[in-house]
Design a protein around this nucleic acid. Sequence first.
DNA 1: TTATAATAGGATATTATCATCCTATTAGCA
DNA 2: TGCTAATAGGATGATAATATCCTATTATAA
Lengths: 150, 150
Amino acid sequence: MLSQTAEYALRALVLLAERTPGQPARVGELADELDIPQNYLSKTLHTLSRTGVIASARGKGGGFMLGRAASDITLFDVVDPFDRLGDRPVCLMGQGECSEAHACAAHATWKAVSRQVQAFFLQTTLADLAKKRRPALASRTARKRRTGKM
Amino acid sequence: MLSQTAEYALRALVLLAERTPGQPARVGELADELDIPQNYLSKTLHTLSRTGVIASARGKGGGFMLGRAASDITLFDVVDPFDRLGDRPVCLMGQGECSEAHACAAHATWKAVSRQVQAFFLQTTLADLAKKRRPALASRTARKRRTGKM
DNA sequence: TTATAATAGGATATTATCATCCTATTAGCA
DNA sequence: TGCTAATAGGATGATAATATCCTATTATAA
């Protein structure tokens, strides 16, 4: 479903979301814990730092940390620079023949399914993924419905 | 969503489903109409002929045709030899840590979405995709006649 | 039986993705 | 200042997906 790169990014950011905010985590740490090639993760995170979802600090005591609240970073934000799920042609058949005006028989059905996938990525946040693993967190009250901008 | 190969397979089989049954279609024809590399499509179709969804006939007058009724061939049947959507790990995060017993926070939500995708492929048949295009075929026959692209 | 038209399929080329290597840059601290 | 720890990033290598080339095999018909 996701490319290797996007999956790396997602897993790393979930880990970041579980850290205490404001405290940078080194790539080496993350890569080691997730069993991801360090140099590769480094570039992947660098890409995400350019989009603003994470921030980077160079030099001693540096590292990567979330650029904003985990509850404000959707999976779409994390994955889009690598896989772009959003602007993908809706029709399975490619070829562009299958538009709204000129739809194949599966168009409507597939579009509905496709939208659900999109909605999942747009509405799920890093906070949603991180909290379950956290030892003691009371309830799921923080699960705020984000407006689906389809 | 689908690999190039799987998409080629799907488009070619939809085309086959629109043909009169029992009459083989040459790879060259299909490739030309769909603008797919002929030799590549040839191997792709050959793969599908080994799973039985299509049949092949060598020699003069030969070609490929559906192995059974279009309404009896699901998109899963077509796509599975190349992309295998079915046995994919359910969890986005890979790593196998996220099982039913040991689920991440997104597990349930993602699984539901994932199942819908699976259901679409398992329940939609070639007949579903083919029938809609049939009426319009006459007006569009000349259209695809080798535009100078590439 | 021979010519021809088609798939079968091994070998190879091309391209994109994934990964590593090495050096540059930046920041903190003695 | 100079040492060290970290990201930045260009260059390169490895692997998998995509595509092409060429020959073998098979079926039909003259």
